[in-house]
Amino acid sequence: MPIYRIAIGTVADASHPSALRAALAEFFSMVIFVFAGHGSGMAFSKLVARDSAPQSADGLIIAALSHGFALFVAVSVGANISGGHVNPAVTFGIFLGGNISFMRSIIYWIAQLLGSTVACMLLNYATGLEAPAFALSSGVSVSNALIFEIVMTFGLVYTVYATAVDPKRDNVGVVAPVAIGFMVAANILVGGAFDGASMNPAVSFGPAMVSWSWDHHWVYWVGPMTGAAVAAVVYDNLFIDHSHEPLDADDF
């Protein structure tokens, strides 16, 4: 990955009206995603408590479907404005590929974290329940969870690069939100029973903030950021032909 392609940017770059509109789009996309995805888990927990018949497998399938559908919508509605990152790890991977400046990444991260927090606050108020923070399942070690988060996020960001960043994507880019949503849903089916399958630091941050529960929270930052970095480096170096015209920062 050519280091010269990584852009730091300026304060003016981050405060430009287009950057602020993009950050606002990230905020609303994150609210949509977390409210629907995390809210589905809270709704299922309420039904289980009412029926006194825990069905963890059913809950995992519901979580996968709700997160997959919600992410498909969240990415689609933000694509033309911010690129539809809806994930600090995705933004980090895009930054490493030289497609967004570091200063602009910062306002994306702030908007994403705020969106997740606001969504969880709304869920708390609307349901009367507390949005549960991500946690490791019984018998799952920190190293196990870290590997899960790295591998799952690698798959997610690799998919983002292949369908939305690669200049050769052509018509594949049209199905990018679908592919990204499916990747998240599939990963939840794999890792959801072990560590909740976050793949997204903002999705973990919101529930942790409103419940003030920070046990092993660093795993949900280090794992996704590491997986995103590896995916960006691998795809950018092995598969992107840099003789093509590079993406404009506003394109993704």
Rank of each mutant, 00 (worst) to 15 (best):
G93S: 03
G192M: 10
V190F: 12
V184N: 06
V86E: 09
N99F: 03
I100F: 11
A111I: 00
S141V: 13
G97Y: 08
T127H: 08
S198L: 04
A70G: 06
I81C: 04
K168T: 13
A126L: 15
N87V: 05
M103Y: 08
S143L: 15
V174T: 15
G98M: 08
P132F: 08
A74W: 06
G115M: 02
V174H: 08
V160P: 02
K168P: 01
G84N: 05
N171E: 12
I150G: 06
N99K: 15
I147F: 14
G68H: 12
V90A: 04
V190A: 14
G181I: 11
F148T: 06
G98K: 00
L129M: 08
I110E: 01
N80V: 02
S82G: 10
T117Y: 02
P167C: 04
D195H: 06
V86F: 13
I180C: 10
S105V: 00
E149G: 05
L146H: 07
C120T: 04
V118M: 02
L122R: 10
A162D: 06
F194K: 06
I81R: 08
T153Y: 03
T153S: 00
A197L: 07
W109H: 03
S116R: 11
I147D: 01
I106N: 01
P88N: 14
G68M: 11
F148V: 14
Y158D: 03
G97L: 13
E130G: 09
D195K: 06
S137M: 03
A126E: 10
V75E: 03
A79V: 00
V73P: 00
F148C: 14
E149W: 07
M121A: 13
S82D: 10
N80C: 02
N171H: 12
F134D: 01
G128Q: 05
G191V: 10
F134I: 12
G97R: 02
V151A: 12
S138T: 15
F154Q: 12
G191C: 04
G83F: 07
I147W: 10
V178A: 14
I150P: 00
N171I: 09
T163K: 01
I110H: 05
A119F: 04
G115T: 07
L113H: 00
A176D: 09
F72E: 01
